[in-house]
Every structure is written in C-alpha cells, then in structure tokens.
C-alpha cells in the first residue's frame, strides 16, 4: 500500500504517494528528477547520497522515502540561493576540491555539517568529519582545503 508524504525540498513542498520500499535517494532522483544526489554503493558506506534532512546529514540510500514525511530536505540543488553560490560551493571550486564531480554533492553536504557543528574546525576535525564520504579522485587534500576555505568565507560573512 502506497504511503502519502509531503516533503519540503530546497524550499518547495512536494506531496506524493510513495511505494513503502522506495528509498529516499530514489524518490529524489527518479520521482523528482533531482539527480544531483548520487548513488555510489549499497552498504551505506560511500556517502555519495548524503543530503541534509532537518538540518543534519543523512545517507539518503539508508532511509525510506516514506520516512521523510514532514521533513525539510536540502540537496545539492538547493545549496546556492538566488544564483549565489554557497560558501562550500565556492570553496570546492576555488580549491579544486573536485575532479570527476561524482562524490562532490555528498562531500559538500558533509562539509556543511562539519561547519555547522564547528565553524572553525582543525584539519584533523575536518578529516574526521569526512570519514563517511569517499572520494577516489582528489586524495582529499583539496577537499580539506575547500572546507577550510568555506570556513573562512563563512566567518567573513
């Protein structure tokens, strides 16, 4: 039996009937065509599907769409506001924090969470905060720098 849900995603409310077994990531990608959130594994390990749910990062592959009823969600598509990039996006661009771009949406969400918990994190704290997100391209060096850049940029704002 399908489940009716209403979810606010990047500021827009969506009401849909979802199949109980539909994962939140598939709801975003297949039902709403928000394909910026990616799927990289089936063991909740890689973090490519990381989004913000009620202000906290979650792996959207490990949540049923039905569970998101009433939630506020932010995906990569909602990071920039009024065409102005979010500091984390600025950071990744400025510091070459991405190569193939596939892990990037989830990685930026992890970065947002790190800075939310701690606006001025050390390198070690950033690295620890990224432990649930895999990148195969960058060796993480520039991702760490990207988050440091975003921290500075946010502090200056």
């Amino acid at each position: 039996m399908n489940v009716p849900i209403t979810v606010t995603i990047n500021g827009t409310a969506y009401t849909r009937d979802v199949e109980p077994r539909q994962l939140l990531v598939h709801f975003l990608r297949e039902t709403l065509n928000l394909t910026g959130t990616h799927i990289g594994c089936d063991t909740s390990s890689c973090g490519a599907c990381t989004i913000m749910l009620n202000g906290q990062t979650v792996k959207s592959c490990t949540l049923l769409a039905a569970q998101a009823d009433g939630a506020e969600i932010m995906t990569v598509e909602g990071l920039a506001t009024d065409g102005k990039l979010h500091p984390i996006q600025e950071g990744f661009w400025q510091e070459h924090g991405l190569q193939c771009g596939f892990c990037t949406p989830g990685m930026m969400m992890a970065g947002v969470q790190i800075l939310k918990n701690n606006p001025n994190p050390t390198e070690e704290e950033i690295r620890h905060g990224l432990e649930g997100n895999f990148c195969r391209c960058t060796g993480y060096h520039n991702i760490v720098k990207s988050i440091q850049y975003a921290a500075k940029k946010s502090a200056a704002m």
Binding site: L34, G36, L85, W93, F102
Partner: peptide, 14 residues
C-alpha cells in the same frame, strides 16, 4: 566545476 557543484552534472544513470 560549475555544473558539478550545483548538481547539474549529467552522468549516465541520470
């Protein structure tokens, strides 16, 4: 990078 950091990359599964 612009398209990748805004979620507008277009990978095959997309």
């Amino acid at each position: 990078d612009k398209r990748f950091i805004t979620g507008q990359g277009r990978y095959t599964d997309d």
